[in-house]
Amino acid sequence: MKPTVGRIVHYVSHGTPGGEYVSQCRAAIVTATDPDPEDVPEPGQVFAGLAVLAPEGMFFNSMVLQDEDSHAGGTWHWPEREGS
């Protein structure tokens, strides 16, 4: 599925090196899509600009890489579906 402006996704926070704060999912809104192809390091990678909503405040990030597999810190992914 391709991200579009206004969609809700999950941003994965980095956490802290000492483990005081763990990496966790935060709600984010897609604010930009389709970066210049010259800016994409690997063909097929998907990037999006995000407005991340966190308890500490809101922040904006451009060129955030999609990671549906490992959910590494600093990436975004589609929200998981809950079973009924």
Score class of each variant (00 low, 15 high):
Gly19Pro: 15
Glu56Arg: 02
Glu42Tyr: 10
Ile8Asn: 15
Glu38Asp: 09
Pro79Cys: 14
Trp76Asn: 05
Ser13Glu: 14
Met58Val: 08
Met63Asn: 09
His71Glu: 01
Phe60Met: 07
Pro17Ala: 13
Glu20Arg: 00
Tyr11Val: 10
Pro17Leu: 11
Ala27Ser: 15
Val46Leu: 02
Lys2Arg: 15
His77Cys: 04
Glu42Asn: 11
Val22Tyr: 08
Arg26Phe: 07
Arg81Leu: 12
Phe47Cys: 04
Pro41Ser: 10
Phe60His: 11
Glu42Ser: 07
Thr16Gln: 14
Arg7His: 11
Ala48His: 06
His77Gln: 04
Thr16Lys: 09
Pro37Leu: 01
Gly18Lys: 12
Ser70Met: 02
Thr4Gly: 11
Val12Gly: 03
Val46Pro: 06
Ser84Met: 14
Ala27Gln: 14
Gly44Ile: 02
Asn61Ala: 05
His77Trp: 06
Cys25Phe: 08
His77Met: 01
Trp78Asn: 04
Phe47Ile: 01
Phe47Ala: 03
Leu65Ile: 00
Asp39Val: 07
Asp34Ser: 15
Asp34Lys: 13
Thr75Ser: 09
Ala51Met: 02
Gln66Phe: 05
Lys2Met: 15
Tyr21Lys: 15
Val46Gln: 06
Pro41His: 04
Val52Arg: 00
Leu65Phe: 00
Leu53Phe: 13
Pro55Cys: 14
Phe47Ser: 09
Cys25His: 10
Thr16Cys: 12
Ala51Cys: 01
Trp76Ser: 05
Val12Ala: 06
Ala28Trp: 09
Asp36His: 06
Lys2Glu: 15
Gly6Lys: 06
Pro55Ile: 11
Gly74Val: 01
Ser23Leu: 08
Pro55Thr: 14
Glu82Trp: 14
Phe60Arg: 08
Glu20Ser: 05
Pro17Arg: 10
Pro17Gly: 13
Ala51Phe: 01
His77Thr: 00
Leu65Tyr: 01
Phe60Ala: 05
Ala54Val: 02
Arg26His: 10
Trp78Gly: 04
Ala51Lys: 01
Ile29Gln: 06
Met58Ile: 03
Cys25Thr: 11
Ile29Phe: 07
Gln24Val: 08
Val46Cys: 09
Met58Gln: 10
Glu82Pro: 14
Val46Ile: 06
Glu80Leu: 11
Ala28Met: 10
Ala32Cys: 07
Gly18His: 14
Gln45Ala: 03
Ala48Glu: 09
Gly18Gln: 13
Phe60Gly: 05
Val22Asp: 13
Ala27Asp: 14
Leu50Trp: 03
Glu68Ile: 00
Asn61Gln: 04
Met63Cys: 08
Ala28Phe: 07
Asp67Leu: 00
Glu82Lys: 15
Tyr11Trp: 12
Ser70Pro: 01
Val40Ser: 02
Gly19Met: 15
Met1Ala: 14
Pro79Val: 08
Ala54Lys: 04
Val30Cys: 07
Pro37Glu: 06
Gly73Cys: 07
Gln24Ala: 14
Ser13Pro: 10
Trp78Ser: 03
Ala54Gln: 10
Met58Tyr: 03
Arg26Gly: 03
Ser23Lys: 15
Pro35Gln: 04
His77Ala: 06
Phe60Lys: 03
Arg26Pro: 07
His10Thr: 13
Gly73Arg: 05
Glu20Asp: 05
